[in-house]
């Protein structure tokens, strides 16, 4: 009993430590991402928490921002469909990047890519959540201030993504940029394949349904 709680506590402590490490990563991207993988300072659990927090940040931005900044047409607002694209795109990014970098002498494994990508999203959470509070203080004329910080969070994330690509795959900056570009192309191909797959599945399913109906008509 005691040993069990001790292990549990230790796990929790490790999670907290790895989660706190993201704060170090965003300010020291090169050291940070290198150590994240090679010194095992990050964890999948922490990465998942950051990823979920990113999705929640989006949801909170939509639901809690003050009126002029974000006020959707609630009658036609589907939270699931709004959250889904960013979640799906994230996973497709990881898979596309992994499948490309294995061909391009990348050192990173899928778990490394997932972890580093998720850690790179930290500034988005850290900036966007305070921005929600800021919308209650700013008037719409001062939207520029809001936009500056909102864009800053994106730019920061992009820089971190590139640094992460460089460190986990042991790439030069040029190769990191090139592989990121190729990854986006690969993402498009994957999305295309998914859509085609689903449409083909529905059509072939429809074929068998029609076949069954036809057969039942003939039999009776």
């Amino acid at each position: 009993m005691n040993a069990k709680t001790e292990i549990y506590k230790e796990k929790l402590r490790h999670l907290g430590k790895t989660l706190r490490y993201s704060l170090y990563v965003i300010f020291h991207p090169f050291d940070g991402f290198w150590d994240l993988i090679h010194e095992k300072r990050g964890s999948i659990g922490a990465a998942t928490i950051i990823f979920i927090m990113m999705l929640l940040t989006q949801v909170w931005t939509w639901t809690y921002s003050a009126f002029p900044f974000y006020f959707p047409q609630w009658e036609y607002f589907n939270l699931f469909m709004r959250v889904l694209p960013s979640a799906v795109l994230f996973f497709i990014w990881c898979i596309a990047n992994w499948s490309l970098t294995t061909l391009m002498d990348g050192k990173g494994r899928l778990s490394h890519i997932y972890m580093a990508s998720a850690y790179a999203l930290t500034p988005f959470i850290l900036i966007r959540i305070p921005l929600i509070f800021l919308t209650y203080i700013l008037s719409y004329d001062e939207y520029t201030y809001y936009a500056v910080f909102a864009n800053l969070s994106i730019v920061w994330c992009v820089i971190l993504f590139i640094a992460a690509m460089m460190m986990i795959h042991d790439y030069t900056i040029g190769k990191a940029l090139f592989s990121s570009f190729l990854t986006i192309v690969a993402m498009m191909i994957i999305i295309f394949l998914i859509i085609m797959f689903f449409s083909l599945i529905t059509q072939s399913f429809g074929y068998f349904v029609a076949l069954y109906k036809e057969a039942t008509f003939r039999l009776y």
Binding site: F67, P68, F71, I137, S139, Y140, D141
Partner: peptide, 18 residues
């Protein structure tokens, strides 16, 4: 203003209120 989504006037009123 909020009920009819008049951003500009809302912003004016809000600035005064603030």
């Amino acid at each position: 203003f909020k009920s009819k989504r008049d951003y500009n006037n809302y912003s004016k009123a809000f600035a005064e209120y603030r």
